[in-house]
């Protein structure tokens, strides 16, 4: 590829007005050198890498497993306190979800509509204003009214 392209000579690149181009050429050269150097280390697999997959090596996430430390009926009060706390947190989370009777999707949809409405409304209002101005222009320029004490 580089053979086809005409290369700028060194002396031209050294000129003052060629500063930017020089930087660009140097950068390109650096890139090419890097590719040459590491090219054979890039495997076929790395080239085909896609972002579609996440690897999760633990079952804990896949099966939603609990921590393996449990205590019941006062055998270890400390652990039981922690378990209770966790349960409370979960309850709170569940409640928060319940409290919002409008789902996030609905809300988003609603907002979208609202935005559209306002846009059209604004246009409508603008046109109305114009019309009003056309029909009955202000008869007089409003005068300054002296405040009365």
């Amino acid at each position: 590829m580089s053979a086809n392209k005409t290369k700028l000579s060194k002396s031209i690149l050294e000129m003052k007005f060629m500063k930017r181009t020089k930087e660009k050429v140097e950068k390109q050269q650096f890139q090419e050198e890097g590719e040459e150097y590491f090219g054979n280390e890039l495997t076929e697999r790395m080239k085909k890498d896609s972002e579609r997959f996440i690897i999760e090596p633990s079952y804990i996430f896949c099966e939603k497993l609990i921590d393996g430390r449990v205590s019941f009926q006062g055998m270890n009060p400390e652990i039981e306190r922690l378990m209770e706390e966790e349960q409370k947190n979960e309850c709170v989370k569940a409640k928060e979800k319940e409290e919002t009777d409008i789902s996030d999707e609905q809300m988003a949809q609603n907002w979208k509509n609202y935005r559209k409405m306002t846009k059209t409304e604004r246009r409508y209002e603008k046109s109305l204003e114009k019309q009003n101005n056309d029909i009955e222009p202000l008869s007089k320029k409003p005068k300054f009214l002296k405040p009365q004490y």
Partner: peptide, 26 residues
């Protein structure tokens, strides 16, 4: 994995009748 599943009733069932403490490692 079976006993630590959040749907597993084993520990809660056992807890009805007796006090105990378990540490189950993966």
């Amino acid at each position: 994995r079976k006993i630590l599943n959040h749907n597993s009733p084993l520990f809660n069932m056992l807890a009805h009748s007796q006090a105990f403490e378990v540490a189950a490692g993966m």
